[in-house]
Amino acid sequence: MHQLMGGSVKFDPSNMVLTAGATPAIEILSFCLADQGNALLVPTPYYPGFDRDVKWRPGVDLIPVHCRSSDNFSLSITALEQAFSQARKRGVKVRGILISNPSNPVGNMMTQDMLYSLLDFAEEKNIHIIADEVFAGSTYGSKKFVSIAEIIDSEYIDKSRVHIIYGLSKDLSLAGFRVGVIYSYNNNVLAAAEKLSRFSSISTPTQRLVTSMLSDKSFIQEYFETNRNRIREAHDAFVEGLSELGIKCAESSAGMYCWADMSGLIRPYSEKGELELWEKFMSDAKINITPGSACHCIEPGWFRICFTTIALEDIPLVIERIRRVVESCKSSS
């Protein structure tokens, strides 16, 4: 994490709890910060796995904070205020905000000013912030990723409210190794998380392999640079191919996916129409993409398409399959 951020942040190992991937890290923090029936605010669209990680066993609810395409699905404090106030009117206790930065599925990143505003909001409402930063190193745009860890050195900020999640599955392509970490400034949370992590331990063989790999700093740096270049190349090729079909994507700077607007292809303009288009991609094009409704997107017709699961030379084949579906939708309408 220190190397990923160019040495700008020093991380204290005593503030870390290792877990078998980011999934149990989110679940553990849900157990630590909230009781059953409490809630976390989460900007939409959001990673569908959050529903599983936060709701299934911890029993914590997720309250969507709806963001819209007109703002490139960026979060606003006004939207947070509204969601918080509505939850309080319903008698729901909000215990924190769960963000993914860089965003999954949109691929945009929070600005430094927005992170400061989030911290102010959390302090005002007496709630916590869980920052999922698993795509921190998978950037390809001109914008620099800013970790929340970089901006909390100010004296007035209550660090005990901030909890960061990271893992090796995305930036180092080690999904099957199941290596994640909770980084918290709250001693009580760390103590509880350490006990709960006993049920999601990283295997000893994995620890030995990963320790050896991470110790080779020159390799890690070279890997990050190579990976970023490859993601950028795949992203540009895929987005260009979609653009030629009349499909626009949200502006993004990170991640292994694009957030594509196919609202013009759905009939009716609703979740039903969106799911029918998703089924058409599955049955006719043999392509599985994530419908926006699975990410709690308030606007029908948006889809997340992962472009790093295929080789660069196979992108034209996928674009051709998408073209056939697009033409079929246009002819039928």
Rank of each mutant, 00 (worst) to 15 (best):
R267V: 03
Q82G: 13
Q82E: 00
A193R: 02
F238R: 06
E133W: 08
N288R: 15
T308F: 00
P300D: 09
S76M: 02
T44G: 04
D132L: 02
S173Y: 11
D12N: 11
P45L: 05
E271L: 14
R267N: 01
V106H: 03
S154H: 09
S100W: 01
R52T: 04
T78H: 14
L174R: 03
F303A: 06
A191Y: 10
A22S: 09
G7T: 05
W259G: 01
A250E: 06
M213E: 13
W259D: 09
L119H: 03
A22K: 02
Y257P: 03
R198W: 14
A260R: 07
E240W: 07
Q3M: 15
S331A: 09
L168D: 02
A22Y: 08
S138R: 01
G91A: 07
I63H: 05
R321W: 10
P316T: 06
N126E: 06
Q82P: 07
A20R: 02
I127C: 03
L242I: 07
V60C: 03
Y140N: 00
E271V: 12
F31C: 06
E274W: 00
V179R: 07
A83Y: 05
G96S: 06
S253D: 14
A34H: 01
M213G: 14
Q112M: 09
G167S: 11
V162Y: 01
K89Y: 15
W302F: 12
E299P: 10
L33F: 06
V325I: 09
K170C: 13
V134W: 02
A175V: 07
P13N: 06
P48T: 02
L119N: 07
L80R: 03
V60P: 00
F177M: 11
Y269D: 12
N229C: 14
Y46V: 01
V92Y: 05
E225M: 15
V92W: 10
V17G: 05
G49S: 08
N108Y: 04
A39K: 00
N126Q: 03
E225P: 15
L174E: 11
S14P: 12
G246N: 05
Y116Q: 13
M262R: 02
I319A: 06
H66L: 08
K159M: 02
K55T: 13
S117G: 12
S201C: 13
V179Q: 10
N15A: 12
A254I: 00
T226Y: 15
F303L: 01
N38Y: 08
K248D: 14
L275D: 11
N288Y: 11
K125G: 08
S69E: 12
I319Q: 11
G141S: 01
T19Y: 00
F177S: 12
I151R: 05
Q221I: 14
F177H: 12
K125F: 05
A294K: 11
D261C: 12
Y257W: 12
V9L: 02
F121T: 08
G264C: 04
Y140I: 04
S252V: 10
A22T: 09
A39E: 03
S243K: 13
N72S: 03
E274D: 00
L214S: 15
L317D: 14
R323A: 04
S253A: 11
E240Q: 04
D314I: 11
T23L: 05
G107F: 04
I231Y: 10
I148G: 01
L33W: 06
N229Y: 15
D216L: 12
T139K: 00
A25W: 03
I287A: 06
I148D: 07
D53L: 11
Y183E: 09
